[in-house]
Design a protein around this nucleic acid. Sequence first.
DNA 1: ATTATGTATATAAACAGATTATATACAGGA
DNA 2: TCCTGTATATAATCTGTTTATATACATAAT
Lengths: 110, 110
Amino acid sequence: MAQSGDFLRGHTETIILRLLLDGDSYGYEISKNIVERGMGLIDIKDATIYTAFRRMENDGLLATYWGEGAGGARRRYYSITEKGRKLYEEKKAEWQKLRTVLDNLILGGK
Amino acid sequence: MAQSGDFLRGHTETIILRLLLDGDSYGYEISKNIVERGMGLIDIKDATIYTAFRRMENDGLLATYWGEGAGGARRRYYSITEKGRKLYEEKKAEWQKLRTVLDNLILGGK
DNA sequence: ATTATGTATATAAACAGATTATATACAGGA
DNA sequence: TCCTGTATATAATCTGTTTATATACATAAT
């Protein structure tokens, strides 16, 4: 019923911003990175990543430039902007609050 | 950008199932219950609840009956089915795993 | 009396982010 | 030559949530 995309929704941008905090990267690498850390639960699709990039670039959260295609195809690199950093901090705080709320609502208790 | 609905998505049904585990209830009460526990972060809309009920009833997760409208309008009560209980257990385990994954992806570390 | 508020359910239409499908391109191994 | 892996991109589709709107009854306020 609910696919991985259902609970990724609302977090995809935050995750991308977090990864770019460690340094510039490109779509394919970011995608692989997310799936790797996803413990088999997260299966983010290429199209999701690339459409998120367009959206985030338009929103001024990311800056982009072309890197040399070392080996295979060309790579488009992304770097996080100041606006992106600020949004990340907000989203991070939001997640920490949300986690508590969902623990309460899903696991129950009280 | 991301509204509360974005991170509710994929969890709404789980939350409803959890609340019905405590006993039969009706839409308005469930809705109020969720918002109350939401710490101002969750603002689930009526339409979301009622469309979720239809979906879940069609999926055999819920059974329904009319209760007397004590005071105001009539109430449609819902009770969780065996299938609903099983799905809840799956979703609960999924959430506990997802929480760890998202902690890793959003907060970073390692 | 009538207006406003709170309780309670319901559905069509719009919205938005994720998925599916498809296309392109190059390198290296079988 | 074909397949796999790397790498990006977009149109069309899917789906759960939201917006807007409708109905209905009880009670308190004007």
